[in-house]
Amino acid sequence: MSWDVLLHYAPALIRGFGVTIACWASGCALGLVLGFAVALGAEAPSRALRAVLRVYVEVLRGTPFLMQLFILYAGGPSLGLRLSATTAGVLGLGLYSSAYFSEIFRGAFAAVPRGLIEAAMSVGMAPFDILARVRAPIAFVAASPPIVNTLIVMSKETVVLSIITVPELMYEMQTMAAETFTAFDAIFAMAVFYWCLVEVVSRIGRRVEKRAAAFLVSHA
């Protein structure tokens, strides 16, 4: 490991790290919001809407993230959609993760015990209140372990953004590697970085899972 090289590139790497975290956070935030909306849409009475959302989810889950990024970033201009690499990256991550999040929410909504909803209906609560006060909070708890899991998966997907030249950590590392011929150091550092990130988030995830389980089991 050549520490002086790492030190020299430290500012760029720290910037890259910031970009990685920012892309991850904003992409997943977008994905959670979109995914929640898609899960609600899947309950709509309109058959056509439900079919469209089904296709949305299947297409996004059935194709590689890299391909979706290429379509957005390289293909977008043909449709008059000119996005910067970073915007395309965040938007792409948001769309891609929304498909997974929507499935998680859909399952979590379906798992809310019917009786809890009936109790709300029996006191005359309106559908929106039942959603906001009963269904959503309970579904969120049930969904939290798979959500953490998906967040981990998405944190690894952010590496792919380097391919469309988003200046995130992997991209900066590769730049460093190309300029200094220290590919090994760079890639090794990346591996260690992601391993740590995933370990930390997984640990948090397991804790969340235990809490969620304690919360849900006791009720039944």
């Binding site: 015990p113 009786g115 809890l116 109790a119 709300a120 006060r133 909070p137 309970i138 708890v141």
Partner: peptide, 8 residues
């Protein structure tokens, strides 16, 4: 029968 209290 099953109370149906909201657990949260």
């Amino acid at each position: 029968q099953h109370f149906n209290l909201w657990p949260h």
